[in-house]
Protein backbone atom coordinates (compact mmCIF):
# COMPACT_ATOMS: atom_id res chain seq x y z
CA UNK A 1 0.00 0.00 0.00
CA UNK A 2 2.64 2.43 1.05
CA UNK A 3 4.78 1.37 -1.89
CA UNK A 4 1.92 2.21 -4.20
CA UNK A 5 1.65 5.60 -2.59
CA UNK A 6 5.38 6.05 -2.98
CA UNK A 7 5.34 5.15 -6.60
CA UNK A 8 2.35 7.45 -7.09
CA UNK A 9 4.24 10.27 -5.42
CA UNK A 10 7.36 9.60 -7.40
CA UNK A 11 5.48 9.63 -10.71
CA UNK A 12 3.82 12.89 -9.67
CA UNK A 13 7.24 14.28 -8.85
CA UNK A 14 8.48 13.08 -12.18
CA UNK A 15 5.59 14.79 -13.90
CA UNK A 16 6.26 18.04 -12.07
CA UNK A 17 10.00 17.95 -12.77
CA UNK A 18 9.36 16.93 -16.36
CA UNK A 19 6.90 19.77 -16.64
CA UNK A 20 9.56 22.29 -15.69
CA UNK A 21 12.05 20.70 -18.02
CA UNK A 22 9.68 20.55 -20.93
CA UNK A 23 8.51 24.11 -20.35
CA UNK A 24 12.04 25.34 -20.95
CA UNK A 25 12.71 22.81 -23.68
CA UNK A 26 9.48 23.77 -25.43
CA UNK A 27 10.38 27.44 -25.20
CA UNK A 28 13.73 26.87 -26.89
CA UNK A 29 12.28 24.61 -29.55
CA UNK A 30 9.44 27.00 -30.35
CA UNK A 31 11.82 29.93 -30.71
CA UNK A 32 13.97 27.94 -33.12
CA UNK A 33 10.87 26.79 -34.96
CA UNK A 34 9.59 30.35 -35.28
CA UNK A 35 12.85 31.40 -36.89
CA UNK A 36 12.98 28.47 -39.25
CA UNK A 37 9.37 28.99 -40.30
CA UNK A 38 9.93 32.72 -40.79
CA UNK A 39 12.68 31.93 -43.27
CA UNK A 40 10.34 29.76 -45.30
CA UNK A 41 7.15 31.78 -45.32
CA UNK A 42 6.13 33.78 -48.41
CA UNK A 43 7.58 37.27 -48.43
CA UNK A 44 5.49 40.33 -47.63
CA UNK A 45 3.62 41.60 -50.66
CA UNK A 46 3.91 38.28 -52.47
CA UNK A 47 7.69 38.49 -52.74
CA UNK A 48 10.03 35.54 -52.42
CA UNK A 49 10.43 33.87 -49.05
CA UNK A 50 13.44 35.03 -47.05
CA UNK A 51 15.10 31.70 -47.75
CA UNK A 52 14.55 31.98 -51.51
CA UNK A 53 15.79 35.56 -51.37
CA UNK A 54 18.92 34.41 -49.64
CA UNK A 55 19.63 31.70 -52.17
CA UNK A 56 19.07 34.12 -55.02
CA UNK A 57 21.97 36.23 -53.74
CA UNK A 58 25.27 34.53 -54.50
CA UNK A 59 27.13 37.34 -52.75
CA UNK A 60 25.30 36.74 -49.47
CA UNK A 61 25.71 32.99 -49.85
CA UNK A 62 29.43 33.19 -50.53
CA UNK A 63 29.81 35.46 -47.51
CA UNK A 64 27.95 32.93 -45.42
CA UNK A 65 30.27 30.07 -46.35
CA UNK A 66 33.40 32.03 -45.64
CA UNK A 67 31.94 33.09 -42.29
CA UNK A 68 31.13 29.51 -41.36
CA UNK A 69 34.67 28.41 -42.17
CA UNK A 70 36.19 31.31 -40.28
CA UNK A 71 33.98 30.72 -37.24
CA UNK A 72 34.72 26.99 -37.08
CA UNK A 73 38.45 27.44 -37.53
CA UNK A 74 38.80 30.34 -35.10
CA UNK A 75 36.66 28.76 -32.38
CA UNK A 76 38.48 25.45 -32.66
CA UNK A 77 41.92 27.08 -32.48
CA UNK A 78 40.75 29.13 -29.51
CA UNK A 79 39.37 26.08 -27.69
CA UNK A 80 42.53 24.04 -28.30
CA UNK A 81 44.68 26.87 -26.97
CA UNK A 82 42.33 27.28 -24.04
CA UNK A 83 42.52 23.60 -23.11
CA UNK A 84 46.30 23.52 -23.42
CA UNK A 85 46.34 26.43 -21.00
CA UNK A 86 43.57 25.15 -18.78
CA UNK A 87 44.81 21.65 -17.93
CA UNK A 88 48.04 22.69 -16.17
CA UNK A 89 46.56 25.88 -14.74
CA UNK A 90 43.50 24.14 -13.37
CA UNK A 91 45.61 21.32 -11.97
CA UNK A 92 47.78 23.83 -10.18
CA UNK A 93 44.78 25.67 -8.81
CA UNK A 94 43.20 22.43 -7.68
CA UNK A 95 46.22 20.72 -6.12
CA UNK A 96 48.49 23.34 -4.72
CA UNK A 97 47.70 25.44 -1.72
CA UNK A 98 49.41 28.77 -1.95
CA UNK A 99 48.89 32.30 -0.81
CA UNK A 100 46.72 34.40 -3.05
CA UNK A 101 44.96 31.39 -4.58
CA UNK A 102 41.58 33.01 -3.95
CA UNK A 103 42.72 36.22 -5.65
CA UNK A 104 43.97 34.31 -8.66
CA UNK A 105 40.73 32.39 -8.81
CA UNK A 106 38.78 35.64 -8.85
CA UNK A 107 40.96 37.26 -11.51
CA UNK A 108 40.41 34.27 -13.78
CA UNK A 109 36.68 34.77 -13.54
CA UNK A 110 36.84 38.47 -14.47
CA UNK A 111 36.64 38.08 -18.26
CA UNK A 112 33.38 36.15 -17.78
CA UNK A 113 31.86 38.92 -15.73
CA UNK A 114 32.93 41.96 -17.79
CA UNK A 115 30.33 42.84 -20.44
CA UNK A 116 31.63 41.47 -23.76
CA UNK A 117 31.79 44.77 -25.63
CA UNK A 118 33.79 46.32 -22.81
CA UNK A 119 36.13 43.36 -22.79
CA UNK A 120 36.79 44.31 -26.42
CA UNK A 121 37.49 47.91 -25.46
CA UNK A 122 39.80 46.71 -22.71
CA UNK A 123 41.72 44.52 -25.16
CA UNK A 124 42.01 47.36 -27.63
CA UNK A 125 43.48 49.57 -24.93
CA UNK A 126 45.92 46.84 -23.98
CA UNK A 127 47.19 46.31 -27.50
CA UNK A 128 47.31 49.94 -28.58
CA UNK A 129 47.96 51.97 -25.45
CA UNK A 130 49.94 49.73 -23.10
CA UNK A 131 53.67 49.11 -23.68
CA UNK A 132 53.43 45.32 -23.36
CA UNK A 133 50.54 45.09 -25.80
CA UNK A 134 52.20 47.52 -28.18
CA UNK A 135 55.35 45.43 -28.15
CA UNK A 136 53.39 42.30 -29.01
CA UNK A 137 51.50 44.15 -31.70
CA UNK A 138 54.64 45.59 -33.27
CA UNK A 139 57.23 42.87 -32.82
CA UNK A 140 55.47 39.55 -32.34
CA UNK A 141 52.13 39.42 -34.08
CA UNK A 142 49.77 42.17 -35.20
CA UNK A 143 46.47 41.68 -33.41
CA UNK A 144 44.31 44.77 -33.80
CA UNK A 145 41.97 44.56 -36.83
CA UNK A 146 43.37 41.20 -37.93
CA UNK A 147 42.14 37.62 -37.89
CA UNK A 148 44.55 36.93 -35.08
CA UNK A 149 42.46 39.42 -33.14
CA UNK A 150 39.47 37.09 -33.42
CA UNK A 151 41.29 34.28 -31.65
CA UNK A 152 42.77 36.64 -29.08
CA UNK A 153 39.34 38.11 -28.27
CA UNK A 154 37.75 34.67 -28.02
CA UNK A 155 40.63 33.32 -25.99
CA UNK A 156 40.52 36.21 -23.54
CA UNK A 157 36.82 35.88 -22.87
CA UNK A 158 36.24 32.14 -23.18
CA UNK A 159 39.35 30.51 -21.66
CA UNK A 160 38.01 31.04 -18.17
CA UNK A 161 35.28 28.50 -18.94
CA UNK A 162 37.91 25.87 -19.68
CA UNK A 163 39.81 26.55 -16.48
CA UNK A 164 36.59 26.51 -14.45
CA UNK A 165 35.38 23.21 -15.86
CA UNK A 166 38.75 21.48 -15.73
CA UNK A 167 39.43 22.69 -12.20
CA UNK A 168 36.06 21.32 -11.07
CA UNK A 169 37.02 18.00 -12.62
CA UNK A 170 40.41 17.86 -10.87
CA UNK A 171 38.73 18.89 -7.62
CA UNK A 172 36.57 15.82 -7.99
CA UNK A 173 39.53 13.49 -8.41
CA UNK A 174 40.68 12.27 -5.04
CA UNK A 175 44.42 13.09 -4.68
CA UNK A 176 44.85 9.79 -2.88
CA UNK A 177 44.60 7.94 -6.20
CA UNK A 178 47.67 9.78 -7.37
CA UNK A 179 49.38 9.10 -4.04
CA UNK A 180 48.73 5.43 -4.53
CA UNK A 181 50.13 5.56 -8.03
CA UNK A 182 53.24 7.29 -6.74
CA UNK A 183 53.66 4.82 -3.91
CA UNK A 184 53.64 2.15 -6.62
CA UNK A 185 56.55 3.80 -8.35
CA UNK A 186 55.12 6.47 -10.67
CA UNK A 187 56.74 9.87 -10.73
CA UNK A 188 54.51 12.91 -10.18
CA UNK A 189 54.12 13.59 -13.90
CA UNK A 190 53.38 9.96 -14.70
CA UNK A 191 50.85 9.82 -11.88
CA UNK A 192 49.19 12.91 -13.26
CA UNK A 193 49.10 11.54 -16.78
CA UNK A 194 47.94 8.05 -15.86
CA UNK A 195 45.54 8.81 -13.03
CA UNK A 196 44.35 12.41 -12.70
CA UNK A 197 44.12 13.19 -16.39
CA UNK A 198 41.95 10.20 -17.40
CA UNK A 199 39.70 10.71 -14.40
CA UNK A 200 39.22 14.36 -15.29
CA UNK A 201 38.53 13.61 -18.92
CA UNK A 202 34.85 14.45 -18.76
CA UNK A 203 35.60 17.82 -17.23
CA UNK A 204 38.22 18.54 -19.87
CA UNK A 205 35.76 17.72 -22.63
CA UNK A 206 33.15 19.87 -20.93
CA UNK A 207 35.64 22.74 -20.72
CA UNK A 208 36.47 22.39 -24.39
CA UNK A 209 32.80 22.32 -25.35
CA UNK A 210 31.88 25.33 -23.25
CA UNK A 211 34.83 27.34 -24.53
CA UNK A 212 34.04 26.40 -28.10
CA UNK A 213 30.37 27.30 -27.72
CA UNK A 214 31.18 30.59 -26.07
CA UNK A 215 33.80 31.40 -28.72
CA UNK A 216 31.33 30.64 -31.52
CA UNK A 217 28.81 33.07 -30.10
CA UNK A 218 31.30 35.79 -29.21
CA UNK A 219 30.62 39.12 -30.85
CA UNK A 220 31.41 42.31 -28.95
CA UNK A 221 35.10 41.74 -28.25
CA UNK A 222 35.70 40.50 -31.79
CA UNK A 223 34.04 43.54 -33.29
CA UNK A 224 36.11 45.89 -31.17
CA UNK A 225 39.47 44.15 -31.45
CA UNK A 226 39.37 42.50 -34.88
CA UNK A 227 36.93 44.87 -36.57
CA UNK A 228 33.86 43.93 -38.58
CA UNK A 229 35.39 43.60 -42.02
CA UNK A 230 33.38 41.55 -44.52
CA UNK A 231 35.42 38.68 -45.93
CA UNK A 232 38.17 39.11 -43.38
CA UNK A 233 37.03 39.19 -39.77
CA UNK A 234 33.35 38.41 -40.15
CA UNK A 235 32.80 35.30 -38.09
CA UNK A 236 29.16 34.20 -38.04
CA UNK A 237 28.12 36.47 -35.20
CA UNK A 238 29.77 39.49 -36.84
CA UNK A 239 28.30 38.50 -40.18
CA UNK A 240 24.84 38.35 -38.62
CA UNK A 241 25.40 41.85 -37.28
CA UNK A 242 26.69 43.15 -40.62
CA UNK A 243 23.72 41.70 -42.45
CA UNK A 244 21.37 43.18 -39.90
CA UNK A 245 23.14 46.51 -40.42
CA UNK A 246 22.57 46.53 -44.13
CA UNK A 247 18.96 45.48 -44.13
CA UNK A 248 19.48 41.80 -44.90
CA UNK A 249 17.57 40.53 -41.93
CA UNK A 250 16.95 37.30 -43.88
CA UNK A 251 20.64 36.53 -43.91
CA UNK A 252 20.91 37.33 -40.21
CA UNK A 253 18.11 34.95 -39.29
CA UNK A 254 19.55 32.30 -41.55
CA UNK A 255 22.82 32.67 -39.66
CA UNK A 256 20.98 32.39 -36.35
CA UNK A 257 19.33 29.15 -37.45
CA UNK A 258 22.56 27.90 -38.93
CA UNK A 259 24.53 28.67 -35.79
CA UNK A 260 22.00 26.80 -33.70
CA UNK A 261 22.30 23.83 -36.03
CA UNK A 262 26.08 23.95 -36.14
CA UNK A 263 26.40 24.38 -32.42
CA UNK A 264 23.99 21.54 -31.69
CA UNK A 265 25.79 19.24 -34.11
CA UNK A 266 29.21 20.12 -32.77
CA UNK A 267 28.17 19.79 -29.13
CA UNK A 268 26.78 16.32 -29.77
CA UNK A 269 29.93 15.26 -31.57
CA UNK A 270 32.25 16.61 -28.90
CA UNK A 271 30.27 15.03 -26.10
CA UNK A 272 30.09 11.69 -27.86
CA UNK A 273 33.74 11.74 -28.80
CA UNK A 274 35.32 12.50 -25.51
CA UNK A 275 32.73 12.40 -22.81
CA UNK A 276 31.39 8.90 -22.65
CA UNK A 277 28.60 9.04 -20.16
CA UNK A 278 29.32 12.64 -19.36
CA UNK A 279 25.72 13.79 -19.49
CA UNK A 280 23.81 10.58 -19.87
Amino acid sequence: MSRDRDSGRSSRLRAVLGGFLFFYLGFIVLVILANVLWLGRPGAGGGPSPWTFLWSRPDLRAGLWSSIRLSLVASTITSCLAIVLAVPSAYALSRFRFRGAAVIDTIIDLPIVVPPLLAGVALLIFFRQFPVGRFIEQHIVPVVYTRTGIVVAQFFVASAFSIRAVKAAFDGVNPRFEMVARSLGDGPFRAFRRVALPLARNGIVAGFVMTWARAMGEFGPIMMLAGATPGKTDVLSVSAFLNMSSGHVEASIAIVVLMIGLAAGALIVFKKLGGKGYLW
Binding site: Y145, M223, M224, A228, T229, L242, S245
Partner: peptide
Amino acid sequence: VRPTYTGSGC
Protein backbone atom coordinates in the same frame (compact mmCIF):
# COMPACT_ATOMS: atom_id res chain seq x y z
CA VAL B 1 40.63 49.71 -48.65
CA ARG B 2 39.70 47.56 -45.68
CA PRO B 3 36.51 48.61 -43.96
CA THR B 4 35.15 47.93 -40.52
CA TYR B 5 31.43 48.56 -40.10
CA THR B 6 29.71 49.33 -36.85
CA GLY B 7 27.88 52.13 -35.04
CA SER B 8 29.45 55.55 -35.60
CA GLY B 9 30.04 56.11 -31.88
CA CYS B 10 31.67 52.73 -31.43
